[in-house]
């Protein structure tokens, strides 16, 4: 997995609440058997019209945000389907950080498996960053995972919380499965005990 340490980049504002994973990557693109290549279909139905032409008003089609690396989004980002294609599509487009007041559980977890950082901040701070993001390409937001801070383009610093284990894995680009397999003897012990306690399972 890619490491995540720091990122300074253009942030795109998406103030809409309840942006669901069907919006992030519509179902017709879930038929792939690969993880890569989904960025071109990110937010497909909001980004392109029926004929496949760009919808000029959509934020990621605007010149300032075509290379955005951060999203500042409305509450409950990533709700709905568990499809990991949503973070795959965001990452493939180039977005590594999403900032919101809250995230849906499964989407939130999926981000960490893909070197992406979802950041939860209070409403007033998200509002300030949304305003900052609305200024366009010159307003670059800086994210530092080690110090757990987001810095706006005018130098305001906001601290965020993150689970220490998830932070450790992101900073070091660790593979969860490899870590768990180091505990294989604990799993074996559990299985042996469970076979006694609940043999019907």
């Amino acid at each position: 997995m890619d490491k995540f340490t720091t990122l300074t980049g253009v942030a795109a504002p998406m103030p809409l609440v309840n942006i669901d994973t069907d919006m992030i990557i519509p179902k017709q693109f879930l038929k792939t058997i690969q993880r890569s290549g989904l960025g071109k279909n990110l937010f497909d139905e909001m980004r392109f019209d029926d004929d496949g032409n760009e919808i000029a008003t959509f934020v990621l089609n605007q010149p300032a945000y075509r290379n955005a690396q951060i999203l500042v989004a409305g509450d409950n980002f990533g709700c709905g389907s568990s499809r990991e294609h949503a973070p795959w599509a965001l990452a493939d487009f180039g977005i590594r950080v999403v900032i919101s007041t809250s995230f849906a559980d499964i989407f939130f977890n999926n981000c960490f498996k893909n070197g992406m950082l979802p950041i939860v901040l209070p409403q007033d701070q998200v509002d300030l960053l949304m305003e900052d993001a609305s200024k366009g390409a010159n307003a670059r937001i800086a994210v530092d995972l080690e110090s757990q801070t987001v810095t706006s383009s005018d130098g305001q610093v906001f601290s965020f919380q993150i689970d220490p284990f998830k932070k450790h894995c992101l900073l070091n680009g660790l593979d969860d499965i490899g870590l768990t397999l180091e505990k294989v003897s604990a799993i074996d012990t559990f299985v042996a005990q469970a076979a006694q306690a609940r043999p019907w399972v």
Binding site: R83, N109, K113, T180
Partner: peptide, 13 residues
């Protein structure tokens, strides 16, 4: 529900 990376994790472990 879980994501695909977690599906792989459960398959393996």
């Amino acid at each position: 529900g879980i994501g695909t990376s977690e599906v792989e994790h459960v398959l393996a472990t």
